[in-house]
Simulated scan of single mutants.
Amino acid sequence: MTLDDLRVFVAVCRAGNLSAVAREQGCTQSAVSQHVKRLERETGVALLERRPRGVAPTESGRILYEAAADGLAGLDRAVRRLADLAAGGGGTVRVGTGGATVRHFMAEAIVGFRRNHPAVSLEFRTETASRRCLDALLANTLDLAWVTIGAPVPGLEQRPVTELPWVLAVRADDPLAGRPAVDARDLADIPLVRLPPNSISGARLDAALAELGVRGGSDTSVADWDTALLLAELGLGPAVVPAVPGLRAPADGPLRLVPVPALPPLPVGWAVRRWDTLTPPARAFAAAVAASCASDPDGAPLRP
């Protein structure tokens, strides 16, 4: 049993597909299969079972996967810290973000962190959705990920930092634009610019509207809220968006932002593999972002 065997096995469990892992590893599917077979010979149990669309770990395989994933993640962190010490530097913090996360939530924190930790490198990896950030954490290619807080994910810890109220973004000439607030029921039958339902924030919005009995249609879908705002401004339809820090609509501009108080706020914050194993620089950066969010007058900070 080698580290390569375990790494390949963990990758197969996550991907659920031998050929996908072979492409990722730059080897043949047969080579991937040999790693798994060697583990099965040494453990004496079947670790994978075939499914119509790939493979999945057996009960024995899940036990090995959970132990191997945690062990490999800890080993990788140790190797990174040793490399930092050998290089005499302050280390690297790998951060996963959404398309507009850095601008809305981290700009002030980054400036302060760089001033206080000049030897630490910040490495940002932009993903199109929180789910992809969570996958990257599970693959141990990130230290921290800023995500929409959703259902628990095995192997990860999520810590909400702030809650974002929802607003309706509409053109200034829209009949709803002059209201102090919008009743969620007024959104029924209005085609909204929406995020895909498979995104965490989009799913949360759809569930909240459905609970209020609102099942509006949508003929436009976007990948991020900033694009939804732009399309609303261009007149392609209203958009219900979270009021991210710094979101403003100039009084003389074409867009209006009207609160939708009936919708529960959207929780956002940090996801990590394990808080107690984060490096000191990673913990410092997470705290800096949380402090920045707490100082925003429009946000609703959460305390752990």
Rank of each mutant, 00 (worst) to 15 (best):
Glu59Pro: 09
Arg248Pro: 00
Leu205Ser: 07
Leu137Thr: 04
Cys13Arg: 00
Arg114Ser: 11
Gly71Leu: 10
Gly299Phe: 02
Glu108Ser: 14
His104Ser: 12
Ala210Pro: 00
Ala271Thr: 11
Leu138Ser: 08
Thr148Ala: 15
Pro196Tyr: 07
Leu138Trp: 00
Ala290Thr: 12
Val268Met: 11
Asp252Asn: 11
Asp5Arg: 08
Val167Leu: 12
Ser60Trp: 12
Arg51Cys: 05
Pro175Phe: 08
Gln34Phe: 04
Gly98Cys: 12
Asp183Met: 05
Val289Ser: 02
Val244Cys: 04
Phe124Thr: 04
Gly213Glu: 07
Gly253Cys: 14
His117Trp: 13
Ala69Trp: 00
His104Thr: 09
Ala300Glu: 13
Gly150Asp: 06
Arg23Pro: 01
Leu231Asn: 02
Gly91Pro: 03
Ala208Arg: 02
Val8Asn: 00
Pro265Thr: 10
Asp276Lys: 09
Val45Thr: 14
Leu164Met: 13
Val93Phe: 09
Val167Cys: 07
Thr148Lys: 02
Asp183Ala: 15
Leu234Arg: 14
Leu205Val: 06
Ala184Leu: 05
Leu234Glu: 10
Thr148Val: 15
Ala291Cys: 09
Ala177Val: 07
Leu209Ile: 04
Trp275Arg: 13
His104Ile: 02
Thr279Asn: 04
Ala15Ser: 12
Val240Trp: 02
Asp276Ala: 15
Thr220Tyr: 03
Ile63Ser: 07
Arg125Thr: 13
Arg125Phe: 12
Ala87Trp: 06
Arg41Thr: 13
Leu266Gln: 06
Arg103Lys: 13
Thr92Gln: 12
Ser19Pro: 00
Leu85Cys: 06
Ser30Cys: 01
Asp276Tyr: 06
Val12His: 02
Gln158Thr: 10
Ala232Trp: 01
Asp219Thr: 13
Trp225Val: 10
Gly235Met: 11
Ala145Lys: 00
Gly54Trp: 01
Arg14Ala: 09
Pro304Phe: 05
Asp70Gly: 12
Val182Phe: 04
Ser221Ile: 11
Glu233Arg: 14
Thr28Ala: 14
Phe285Lys: 01
Val240Gln: 01
Ala286Val: 05
Ser121Pro: 01
Met106Asp: 05
Gly90Met: 03
Gln25Arg: 15
Asp143Ser: 05
Ser201Gly: 13
Trp270Asn: 01
Asp173Gln: 13
Ile149Ser: 00
Arg23Ala: 13
Trp270Ile: 00
Val12Glu: 02
Val36Asp: 03
Ser130Cys: 05
Val182Tyr: 01
Thr58Gly: 07
Pro280Gly: 06
Pro301Ala: 09
Glu123Phe: 09
Leu72Val: 11
Pro197Ser: 10
Val21Ser: 04
Trp146Gln: 03
Phe285Arg: 04
Leu195Val: 00
Val36Ala: 03
Glu59Lys: 08
Leu82Val: 14
